[in-house]
Amino acid sequence: MPIFTKTAKAVLILSRFLLVAAGLALPAQSALAESAAPAPAAALPAPTGPVMLTVTGRIAGTDGIGMARFDAAMLAALPRREFATSTIWTEGVQSFSGVELRSLIDHLGVTGGTLKITAVNDYSVQIPVSEVVAGGALLADLRDGKPMKVRDKGPLWLVYPYDSAPEFRNEVVYSRSVWQVDRIEVLP
């Protein structure tokens, strides 16, 4: 057991360093991708307000090269969920409201692959679609009922119900809790 724990810890630490390295290396690439973003798919409605989230990659109806953009109203129209939890980055318990990541990818017809989620500050994580389950990650757009600014880790914050179960209180979950989310790319 201790040996395992040690090993696990070593693996975790190692992966963290790799991620740091990746995080340092990514901004340039993503900036390129962003500039080459394709037009949104005809099947998806166009946003009318400021775009809060852009989803690209292998999403339905786009043959893997489409793009979906969401404004606040569009996100509000999707199935929503709300829970209250504390986080290790903030003080006190807050209520988070938004769209479950699962609902989102279901809405977009994503069936497999990996989600690469990127923040305004270019922090980025990859989450296998198979690990995106209902009752898990929430793409929150409201904190305590109010929209979040970039300074308050908005506009979107991928949060988990940390308080509800220990399985949501580990490094992997914390590392996937991306704030200031503005892009998601569905990788094969």
């Binding site: 057991m1 963290r16 290790i88 580990n170 490094e171």
Partner: peptide, 22 residues
């Protein structure tokens, strides 16, 4: 010991050094 292991398994903090570096 279990709780120690749990402490290891449940990270009470994100990678703090990463945050400081950031």
């Amino acid at each position: 010991v279990q709780s120690e292991i749990d402490n290891l398994a449940i990270a009470n903090s994100d990678s703090l050094q990463w945050t400081l570096a950031q």
